[in-house]
Design a protein around this nucleic acid. Structure first.
Lengths: 323, 323
DNA sequence: CGCTCCCATGAATCCAAGG
DNA sequence: TCCTTGGATTCATGGGAGC
């Protein structure tokens, strides 16, 4: 452990570690980690984008990627939160749009959102190898639309995996159940796809029960793991936990695989991919987030492969029913 | 407890009981419990169908029901499982999995399925009171389509509630995560609907954690609770657990409310509704299932309102992580 | 009657190879 | 594409036989 290393010590998830940090090559990557997409670039070779972050529009960049070139995709798209104050938070930019007519706006917004998802998924399907798999995560605000679009595009759903948060924001008003879950859809390109990667042993370790169930219990991203800006504010509003990506990657990829994240945010996917000896391709349009990724990649990471006894106790405690 | 009573003693869900069984009136209901729908019937009054099972096609019957007349709807539609033709064999005991193979779950295409769901939901929305709520349950095979259609029809989703089964059938070939969940969508008619019924105390009791989370852990329906035909085979391939309906009804209705189940199956919804002093309207097209309902209603039921210590231990045990 | 052992079974989009 | 068959992957639960 060299000076300046800031190892992410997930207190709740530490017992044994992989014993491998990102190697020198991985660290050198930071020099030319980012590629800026430009209109005059017509096509990207796989080698040209491997272990790179492409600063640019997801859809535009995806169209330039090589077909059947990636082994796994993780996508964490905008969630399309419709806020109750009659304003919509759009996924494109952080502007608030007045809802003049609720019905009209709802229809417009759904259609716009659906098209965005459909277009991205269409390109993602194109760049997937025949036996690649894809993960998409969202909450109930949009996961149903996404799943339906995926089925319509011919994706064959393998599982819905439910992330149960041990520390959700309680619903203080008491007007509905506390929303403590996010849903991940895991799918292959089409019904015929066989021999995709599925590491049963990891799945059994992560899922509750003894059968490797489609339910993962883990906390949201906070503490040292959470990236902050210069003002100490969180850099990204929905940064995903390392543990989540660890599970996704370990259950569905092999070492050396190519993992694509088209809406990378602060780059958790690529960061964990690298630490687990996978390759990544990330796309992100927001320079602020890309800056966060660059900073992040300067620091190696130990991934704790096992879940500690202490964490197990914490989770059990959380899951306790009744009084 | 009179002679001949067969009380369902859910061993795992007994500690305190409601102390009320279905009363004499409820039992008398069995005499004229079933109404057969006919083309010459143009309209049903609310009184005429209250606490009755209508033998007929869901869509046709729904069109004849009074608008804005029900407080809550529970729908358990076909899931469109699309199971493969070849049966799955257990290699140890040389038996085959008796998977769902009912005609009612067969559709030609997603389009046909979508239309089926959309048409029913449209009528359901019509008969809902302004502040009524609706529950729809399904698995990943179709829940995404259903949710998307609901949103498009203007339903406003309050929660997705995840039923985690303590005893799912394992994915023993190890090609995907064991599918241990079903998803319930809980929604109001539209975004404007307020003051719908939500009993926070029950929600907190049922959901895992201390915040009333949207995750319910309970076993599938089996044992004495499971209805059998004369050959001892399960009467309905997808009978829902009493405990599930108990939770749905207690969290989202008041005593005296009208609960509609348009695809009633063997009538768990109405049966539990009655035991909890609610009113029901059920629609079911299959005479075999309606026969099951009639038989079922001849026996009173105690609902155990609390979850026993023993069951709590069992659930915790199931949820234990790691080895 | 109680206990143990055995077996059946559950909303399952669960295999691969060869004819 | 359909069907058969070899091979070697599964857990919680409850009923019933047997002791």
């Amino acid at each position: 452990m060299t000076n300046g290393d800031v190892r992410i010590q997930e207190k709740l998830f530490s017992s044994e570690t992989l014993g491998k940090t990102m190697n020198e090559n991985a660290l050198k990557i930071t020099d030319d980690l980012v590629i800026e997409d430009k209109p005059d670039i017509k096509k990207y070779s796989l080698d040209g984008v491997l272990n790179r972050v492409i600063l640019g529009d997801a859809l535009k960049v995806l169209k330039k990627l090589t077909e059947e070139s990636v082994d796994m995709i993780f996508m964490d798209p905008p969630y399309f939160l419709q806020l109750p104050n009659k304003k919509l938070r759009r996924w494109t930019v952080k502007t608030e749009v007045d809802a003049v007519n609720d019905d009209w706006d709802k229809f417009e917004s759904f259609e716009e959102y659906d098209n965005f998802i459909k277009n991205i998924l269409t390109e993602l399907k194109r760049v997937m190898k025949p036996n690649a798999t894809i993960w998409v995560i969202a909450t109930y605000h949009s996961i149903f639309r996404i799943g339906k679009i995926m089925q319509d595009l011919g994706f064959w759903i393998l599982n819905d995996v439910h992330w149960v948060k041990t520390n959700p924001m309680p619903n203080w008003l008491g007007v509905r159940f506390t929303n403590a879950t996010e849903t991940l859809i895991w799918a292959v390109k089409d019904k015929k796809a066989k021999k995709y990667t599925f590491n049963k042993e990891w799945a059994k370790k992560f899922g509750i029960g003894k059968v490797g169930a489609n339910v993962w219990v883990l906390p949201i991203c906070n503490g040292k793991e959470r990236l902050k800006d210069e003002k100490g504010k969180k850099l990204h509003s929905t940064q995903k936990p390392i543990e989540l990506l660890k599970r996704v990657i370990l259950t569905s990829t092999k070492e050396g695989d190519v993992i694509l994240d088209p809406v990378a945010g602060v780059g958790t996917t690529g960061y964990i991919a690298k630490a687990l000896n996978r390759n990544f391709i990330m796309i992100e349009i927001n320079p602020k987030y890309v800056g966060g990724i660059k900073k992040r990649f300067q620091k190696p990471l130990n991934i704790n492969l096992n879940i500690s006894q202490k964490k197990q106790r914490k989770i059990q405690e959380y899951l306790n029913l009744g009084e």
